[in-house]
Write a protein that binds this DNA or RNA. Sequence first.
DNA 1: TATATGCTTTGCGTCCTTGCACGATACCAT
DNA 2: ATGGTATCGTGCAAGGACGCAAAGCATATA
Lengths: 293, 293
Amino acid sequence: MSLEPWDELRTALQVARAGTVSGAAQRLGVHHATVIRHIDGLEDRLGVKLFQRHAKGYALTEAGRMLTDGAAEAEARFDKLAARLDMLQSGIEGDLCVTTVPELCDIVLPVLSQLRADNPQLVPCLRVEERLARLEYGEAHLALRAGARPTEPDNVVQPLGALPVALFAAPAYLERRGMPRTEADLADHDVVTVEPGHARAPFDRWMEQHARHVGLHSNDRTTLLAAMRAGLGLGFAPASLQSDALVQVMPPRPDWSAELWLVTHVDLHRSPKVQAATTALKARFAALADESL
Amino acid sequence: MSLEPWDELRTALQVARAGTVSGAAQRLGVHHATVIRHIDGLEDRLGVKLFQRHAKGYALTEAGRMLTDGAAEAEARFDKLAARLDMLQSGIEGDLCVTTVPELCDIVLPVLSQLRADNPQLVPCLRVEERLARLEYGEAHLALRAGARPTEPDNVVQPLGALPVALFAAPAYLERRGMPRTEADLADHDVVTVEPGHARAPFDRWMEQHARHVGLHSNDRTTLLAAMRAGLGLGFAPASLQSDALVQVMPPRPDWSAELWLVTHVDLHRSPKVQAATTALKARFAALADESL
DNA sequence: TATATGCTTTGCGTCCTTGCACGATACCAT
DNA sequence: ATGGTATCGTGCAAGGACGCAAAGCATATA
């Protein structure tokens, strides 16, 4: 007993989804007679009733549920596959989707801008998300992550080195509270940082240990930057940050640095488009590391 | 872009496996020309070359590898499905495959025997394996496990209660070394048990802590029983053990008992055949627990 | 160099699958 | 009650996919 041909599984899945033969036929773009014949053929070959013929449509039996569950998983797998193939076949043109965390988008943005200038056919897209995008689903070509080395299977992760992180504050704040010179001076200052217990990055953990007075907690990094600009306290930011509203209070230190990772899907990381993006990003981050020396 | 119809994926998979169109055609039971047409159609629809036409056959491209990998996973999933459906559709007849660990087969065997007597059409099969059989692959209908509660997804696990475990020895051994009366007496006796550090079951751990003189180590439970019969020392066995060669030295104790679990696949545990087996096994083990009170 | 042996490719006739149309049935609203 | 609107089921004709056989091609062997 075998459940070939696979096409009939697909129609069975659509019948299960639609609940009616006609609906499934419409979605599949075939005649409803064809759908009936597929289901009948499948049931005959399997010797099991997959659907209960109801006046209002087809209802799944236990066996039918099993089969369509399996078919649904296969369909999802094939969809992923199609998305990846779609990406693979394109040259340096069309969409290029990069995802990263909020902290890094200021650094990534110029790279994408340059990439677009060099390749007029390329339209870059920068998605900012905390979670790691499902690269195997084709949600993104590239992901830029900070922190622990990502371990997803089928993803190739390349080290981007450490991101220099420095301590910043608003000029108004420094005018009011003075410029801290040594680590000991920090005890007298307010800081803005992540919520207690949520420190993940090295600099956040450092802050958690050294901060005495907290001006503001937030789960959102952008909010923290805004709080720093508003003069609520000292805070960490990438050393490359260029802003009139914030000045560097202390230079980058190795134990503050966050490890950066460039992660792509195995099947995509050799495609020309992704290659172009990775080399550009690598160059940019190498330059950042040099600057901070 | 879509990779329907699914049948063409299946032929592509076979071409990748066989390496030649002719070989794939033979495996699929279709003509060479059909295979070629499927591949060509797939490539046209996808716009990607899946195979490099070599004089000696078809070689996978990068895209082809991706696609056939996905197809292979789907095929494996469908195979599982077919196996489960095969099992589901049968009544209380045909094969009934039960797997368990060596320690328990003496207890399970009479149940299967009774089951066979009650259902002439049923031919039971008892597979003895240390590892948990892949129930989703249709390797077995039922698995009987001891120890920690199994956690496989898609498996329904039912508690069978605790298996009463007692301390046994060969009559010849007891004649030579005397009958231990108290726990303290055990210090003067030889024991046979599993290898150090491999104690998993409660009674094995207990033995590891209390045993002073070890007569024999073995990784194989059957060997341990043989060693007990040969008079190499005291050892644990299910309290239900009936044997002229071994006598019970100490009655079952709660802290020796091993938790038992009856595990089936979700899609199968409601089928009449599996139901018949589970009720019979449950009754048997409930009776065992009562006896030892 | 010639021969042989695989393979792929292509043209043609046939069979199977599909699409179409019509009929049957059940449910709902007027 | 009756017309309307869904649904599923089946006979018949057309088109597309299949199998067959011959041709083309490349590599290996004598």
